[in-house]
């Protein structure tokens, strides 16, 4: 097998740097909108501004699991057909799982910091919070299982299977928790569906900024994993060549 030499092309690096710069600019605009420009919410006061960072993370935390599931299915498809592509899918799977955990962690944390002044408690077992906790648990257990099952092809296969299970479980637990919580009294909380138009700039700039940031981080983590895989393949290839020389 002819492995391409590690790409020394500057194009991906320049693209990543440009993306990073754009993400930072958009995030800076989003920050300015959220903190200084958007009017203060009437009932909650300034604390409500947590929402502008909370919402993008909560939304993106629901997007990356789909990337993880798609990558895992691609891995299972390519496993026997094209090992190098399969490794790429696996790299995307681990990257998206880690990014999911980061975003959901932040979603839970900022949600909790918002809940204390809003509801007087750090943690209300309401439908949405509980669903996100389950989501967090599923992807943390995926990452731990990856670690336990070793970094070989077998471990990747097992991880891909777990990822499929997790992706199927998310909508079911969403429904179950919805039913569970609508039967019991839960703290009343304002629907964030009815958002006044004057708050939109802060919401949209931050969603755009964190989406740019999130997919950039996903790409960086993916290329790190790809780099590790390439080094491993090279080492394995060198070992094979060395063993051939001895036998001759």
């Amino acid at each position: 097998m002819q492995l391409e030499t590690p790409s020394r092309s500057v194009v991906p690096r320049v693209a990543a740097a440009a993306w990073f710069a754009v993400a930072l600019v958009v995030l800076a605009i989003g920050f300015r909108q959220a903190i200084f420009l958007v009017p203060t919410e009437a009932t909650m006061g300034n604390v409500q501004r947590i929402f502008y960072y909370h919402l993008p993370h909560a939304i993106l935390g629901m997007v990356f699991p789909y990337v993880n599931c798609a990558a895992s299915l691609a891995f299972l498809y390519w496993r026997r057909r094209d090992p190098w592509k399969a490794l790429g899918a696996d790299a995307l799977a681990v990257a998206s799982a880690e990014v999911t955990v980061i975003f959901v962690t932040i979603g839970l944390l900022t949600g909790s910091l918002w809940a204390k002044p809003a509801w007087g408690i750090w943690w209300a077992w309401d439908a949405r919070t509980t669903t996100y906790l389950i989501l967090w648990m599923l992807y943390v257990s995926y990452l731990i299982a990856r670690k336990f099952s070793g970094g070989n092809d077998e471990g990747h296969t097992l991880a891909a299977v777990i990822s499929v299970f997790a992706a199927i479980d998310v909508p079911i637990s969403f429904m179950a928790i919805r039913w569970w919580r609508t039967q019991h009294p839960a703290p009343v909380f304002g629907g964030d569906g009815s958002l006044d138009a004057s708050f939109y700039p802060a919401v949209w700039w931050n969603i755009a900024g964190w989406a740019l940031w999130g997919f950039l981080v996903l790409g960086l983590r993916y290329s790190l994993e790809r780099r590790r895989q390439r080094i491993q393949e090279e080492a394995a290839l060198e070992a094979i060549e060395a063993s051939l020389e001895i036998t001759q």
């Binding site: 997790a166 079911i172 429904m175």
Partner: peptide, 16 residues
């Protein structure tokens, strides 16, 4: 350790 680690989160809807 791995079995409960995987089984419990996946089983949450069923346990509920």
């Amino acid at each position: 350790l791995l079995l409960p680690l995987l089984l419990f989160p996946i089983s949450v809807p069923a346990i509920l």
